[in-house]
Design a binder for these strands. Structure first.
Length: 575
DNA sequence: GCCGTTTTCGGCCCGACTGTTTTCAGTCG
């Protein structure tokens, strides 16, 4: 079994948890957590680096010690340091640390005084009023913990960006109506366009903060107020989404926006940088001594530390600060750059609208070309097209194009890649199309080797143009299939075909990390809506957000080209 | 445990909120 970065990250997180319980030097704990976060965000597998005999200490957050531990984990599958820690912790208390309100001190007290080591035991102890017997635990703490444990036991997960938007936008609109609110912005991972968000961070600019906080907690959807101060508040909505509010004045708005947009790693790096220059950055501004020297805009904050403004989608401390330093930040692709969409369905298969309706909707959305790419016959649940039905649709598209103005429909297919890597329709039919999108819709559980070979084999097909939703992940529902994406990207370059970034909010597949990898290799990405109805094109904005997180520029995205340019690029995929 | 234009030691981001205190520790983001 290959060891992935996420496996190493999990090991380091566990070590950090156990060290934290031991009251170890907090900076040592943080070193493990920083390394775990760095590993999760890397656009390359560390195992590959080791094969190339690369020096791991050149990675940020990795020194001599952690480099040795990484090599140990890759080579042996184990980490002696973790095993030793586990031996000294006969009882695993780390799950308790996950419950909001509990840190190492309280967890220790619970264990020593009440022998509580699981959330279930804690819940019982709280309900039996046993907690109040411990020093530092009062009535309030007990009540809060009961709520927090119950929500923890329901395994509250992250929610998809598009779902978060459905709650964030009306909440923002409501706050905007408050007389004191001068500006309302959603910050946090939402602003960074992460595929899923854990909570919402709302920032309000106002001179008088108290009425804003009051309005915030009185919002209709609020189920529970976790905290409420003069400038901050935290609530939980009825759908169990946590929302944090911060209110600042105009002169601090830029600094606060920077601070609450994150990521944490990016902020820490910026603050260190400021510190080296004798400055202090906090959510109220940039300070030299007690004098504020910047902070009304984000640009002013970056300027004081000698950097240009960095787009939120890049703020992960994964090289963006170094790039900014050298004035080499990418000029990120924008939604308006898209000229067409290369993946959509109609009611001929599992879509809801006609060819004509889809074409007109795409035109209305500002696109000048749209590829219709139905499922193929193997996908029976979607009523996939047989060769005969596809030929019939080809005729219909030709006729429709004669009547359309300002938009051209391309003839395509989202053909199933069968288990042996062959395509689900005969070459004679595929040859008549403008593009062939290959997709996996079955046999998700093949071994890494088999799944990779299956895709590579399909890509070698003479009519293969684009690999649809390349990893098959469904956010918060289904993991990506086990596949060597490094190899697929390199082969796509060799073969001269393209990869899709499927903009459906459930997929957002390719991920940001793989997009960056594809860019590095020089493989073009097609940001496609995979629309099944006339409103589907709206999802392109989520695809573009993800593309921006992957550092993609206009030139890295296939469908920012004009119709004639795309036609030529698609023709080139045919060998 | 990492890191270095203050480089092999001595720092490490920083402030708000809560609850239980009686002046502050613990936790969070």
């Amino acid at each position: 079994m290959p060891i992935h970065n996420t496996d190493i990250a999990k090991t380091f997180e566990k070590i950090a948890d156990l060290l934290q319980l031991d009251n170890a030097n907090p900076f040592r704990v943080r070193a493990y957590r920083n390394a775990a976060r760095m590993l999760n965000g890397m656009n390359q597998e560390v195992s590959t680096l080791i094969n190339q005999k690369a020096d791991l200490t050149r990675l940020p957050t990795i020194g001599k010690d952690l480099a040795a531990k990484i090599e140990e984990i890759i080579h042996t599958g184990k980490c002696l340091a973790l095993e030793k820690l586990r031996q000294t912790h006969s009882t695993d208390l780390t799950e308790l640390l996950r419950i909001p309100g509990l840190g190492p001190k309280k967890v220790h007290a619970l264990y020593h005084d009440l022998d509580v080591h699981t959330p279930e035991q804690l819940l019982r102890a709280a309900k039996d009023s046993r907690l109040q017997t411990i020093h530092g635990f009062g009535d309030k703490t007990s009540q809060t913990l009961i709520k927090n444990i119950e929500s923890h036991l329901q395994k509250k997960r992250r929610i998809k960006l598009a779902v978060a938007a459905q709650y964030a936008e009306p909440y923002t609109a409501y706050l905007n109506k408050q007389a004191q609110a001068q500006e309302v912005v959603i910050a946090g991972s939402y602003r960074r366009c992460k595929d899923t968000v854990g909570d919402l961070d709302i920032l309000v600019c106002a001179n008088n903060s108290k009425p804003v906080v009051q309005a915030f907690v009185e919002y209709d959807e609020v189920a529970n107020v976790l905290s409420k101060g003069s400038q901050r508040s935290t609530v939980v909505l009825k759908n169990s989404l946590q929302v944090d509010l911060r209110v600042v004045t105009k002169k601090s708005m830029g600094a606060a926006l920077h601070y609450f947009t994150g990521s944490k790693a990016h902020n820490i790096a910026i603050r260190r940088r400021a510190q080296q220059q004798g400055l202090k950055v906090n959510e109220y501004g940039v300070f030299r001594g007690y004098t504020q020297i910047a902070g009304n805009t984000e640009e002013s904050v970056y300027k004081t530390v000698g950097l240009p403004w960095i787009p939120p989608e890049l703020r992960e401390n994964q090289g963006e600060i170094e790039a900014a330093e050298k004035n080499k930040l990418p000029n990120l692709v924008e939604l308006q750059n898209l000229q067409g969409d290369l993946h959509a369905h109609t009611k001929a298969t599992d879509g809801y609208n006609s060819l004509k309706e889809m074409a007109e909707a795409a035109k209305h959305y500002g696109l000048s070309y749209l590829a219709i790419t139905e499922h193929s016959k193997h996908l029976t649940v979607a009523h996939g097209l047989t060769a005969e039905r596809l030929l019939k649709q080809i005729d219909e598209i030709d006729k429709l194009n004669d009547t359309l103005d300002g938009i051209t429909v391309l003839k395509g297919i989202e053909v199933d890649i069968l288990e042996d890597g062959s395509l689900d329709l005969p070459d004679t039919v595929l040859a008549k199309l403008d593009l062939v999108i290959g997709a996996i819709h079955s046999n998700f559980k093949l071994s890494r080797d088999k799944q990779t070979r299956r895709i590579l084999s399909a890509m070698q097909h003479p009519y293969f143009s684009i690999l649809a939703h390349p990893t098959g992940r469904l956010l918060e529902q289904r993991d990506a299939y086990d596949v060597d994406m490094n190899r697929i990207i390199r082969e796509a370059k060799q073969r001269g075909c393209y990869l899709e970034l499927n903009a459906q909010p459930d997929r957002l597949d390719l991920s940001d990390v793989y997009c960056q990898m594809a860019k590095t290799e020089g493989v073009l990405i097609s940001v496609n809506s995979d629309s099944h109805n006339i409103n589907g094109f709206d999802n392109l904005k989520f695809g573009i957000g993800q593309a921006r997180r992957g550092w993609l520029e206009k030139s890295d995205v296939l469908n920012t080209r004009s119709f004639t340019q795309v036609q030529e690029l698609l023709r080139r995929t045919m060998v």
